[in-house]
Design a protein around this nucleic acid. Sequence first.
DNA 1: GAGCACTGC
Length: 765
Amino acid sequence: MADRRPEEPEMSRAKRPRTDDPSQNPYLAHMYEAQDTSDYNGYNRSNGSGTKARTGLSDFKRHATTALQAHDAEDGPNNPFNNAPLSKQYFNILKTRRDLPVHKQRQEFLDMFHKSQILVFVGETGSGKTTQIPQFVLFDDLPHFSGKLVACTQPRRVAATSVAQRVANEMDVKLGDEVGYSIRFEDVSGPKTILKYMTDGMLLREAMHDHNLTRYSCIILDEAHERTLATDLLMGLLKEIALRRPDLKIVVMSATLDAQKFQRYFNDAPLLAVPGRTHPVEIFYTPEPERDYVEAALRTVLQIHATEPEGDILLFLTGEEEIEDACRKITLEADEMIREADAGPLKVYPLYGNLPPQQQQRIFEPAPPPTRPGGRPGRKVIVGTNVAETSLTIDGIVYVVDPGFSKQKVYNPRIRVESLLVSPISKASAQQRAGRAGRTRPGKCFRLYTEAAFKKELIEQTYPEILRSNLANTVLELKKLGVDDLVHFDLMDPPAPETLMRALEELNYLACLDDDGDLTALGKLASEFPLDPSLAVMLISSPEFYCSNEILSLTALLSVPQIFVRPASARKRADEMKALFAHPDGDHLTMLNVYHAFKGAEAQADPKRWCHEHFISLRALQSADNVRQQLKRIMEKSELDLVSTDFNDKDYYTNIRRALVAGFFMQVAKKDPSGKTYKTVKDDQSVLLHPSTVLGVDSEWVVYNEFVLTTKNYVRTVTAVRPEWLLDIAPTYYDLATFPKGEVRTALQRTLDKIKRKQAMKGGR
DNA sequence: GAGCACTGC
């Protein structure tokens, strides 16, 4: 395969496009959609046909309006929602809005909206659903007359903010007035707001304090097919709220594939489908399975460059290292092709979440021009992770190379470990990837697997997040949301009973749930924090250990991405810098040292430079600062004291280590007698300390923040603790009467005996 | 001796 000459047009023979009935090809479906030319009831009539100027929407009857009425009101001259004169820009945008596919079905939408409390809306990309449907709702639901709001949820912050801005422009209002958004750390909405875009997690938070979501007259769940944890929980809640609140309207918006599943779930709610506006994408498969998907991907990219007409390439790989490696290799090979075969210039861009935003933006740079006038056209290649599948859309992509893999979170309830695994993608994902080739013009998608594999081996949909996660946090949230009977809570995909049991058990040990499974006072408090239960419990307990200021900082640091930067080109220097902050008792204390140094005068004088010099991520620290502020406000509201032990006190660090145990007593490992490996307590998993640790090998007992499953089982971010603290701080979990027999129990028993002897001596004196 | 896809509160 490696000796294949680039100019050989093999692809047309080996990777044959599908030739079976094209109308059955789901990827070409949009070519065959019924040409809808009906402008029902003359609704699409031209502008200015003698309709009088209308102010406001005073003669609109709620849930009995027509598309025509809304159309007239939109034509101005004044803004129907605030009576201000409409701008020229407004009318320009209005014209383009009326060209969107959803516009044709406005009346159809309203008819269904009137008849049904819950409505499922399916719209492919380019249909305009995210921007238009909420506006259609506004003109009929008239939330401002009842003092309520229409909410539209998004899985991601960027989507919530950018769509809100766009819709504010479309409605000719200032962002934050009639149209606003609400995301973590930022609420741009006010008393005038009638349409609020928000993250699904944010609406879930609101539901915790208002179980009926009474502020809202209509809730639109967008991108429901993504099945985020928050969306799944919201769907379950909304199903219940709908019964308690007949006045609440619910619209669930999704991509086509699983529409019927949503319909069924919502008691056979009516469904409205709107075609998208994309170009056909031709799909090619490999005739034989590929052994090495990275190698095959590189080969395919280079072959496209050599043989296919102008157009940019998007290649999907699984992770940062793989991507950087592939970028290097493609660049090298392309340079050779340019030298030896007069190929056009090729620019390669990596794209993954960890990339600084500035570098992420570079993918939008135009493809390079020909090296000389009249030469072969240039091309850009983007090598990206799944971010390119959902979060980011890049126009101009004509070729997609899809090896069929992505890293996915998996949860093993038996050993209570979440990990990332390179796994085959789903059919839905493959379709989404292919669709990226048809945004600006007809494109091609090269799948590096056989057609038979696609049909038989790929699952239909990626498993929803709720089936792949530790549910401790979810269960706590549900309890706080007033869902007492978890087993009968109607989720679209109920998680495995074992996963639920594990979560309940974990929360019971953390004393967030009592033995009846009811929320305790501690549990209620913990649910107020946007944190995992163990972190929340550690934070809430920290005043008892005289170090809540420090644990507050540490909790924030543990909730953001890795603060230590270690570029491949300067590993040694980075390690030397990290050593400056190292605390002999562990990584938690080391992180705290970094934070304190960062907040010191020298670093604050020029934080960017200081971080760069010390191989610290400024972004991570700034975001930790943000999180810290938010957590601090919640602590103050909950009347939790902010205290510190004097830095010169010998117990300063000891107190912090003891507080760690209060939340992480279930994440403790003990060194094996062999002295090399560790065993997790209770689960008896063999683990190694992650090589990034500052901890020496002489620590008998450690708490760890996370499990990392790669080639070996590692525990990362570890700090030394003493066994007597475990017995003292978490007596229920470390109850030796019920503790599994083994080395760990024997060691704990010895510790207990020692404590008893000491006490006896004291008492005997 | 180094393995964090992505999102969210």
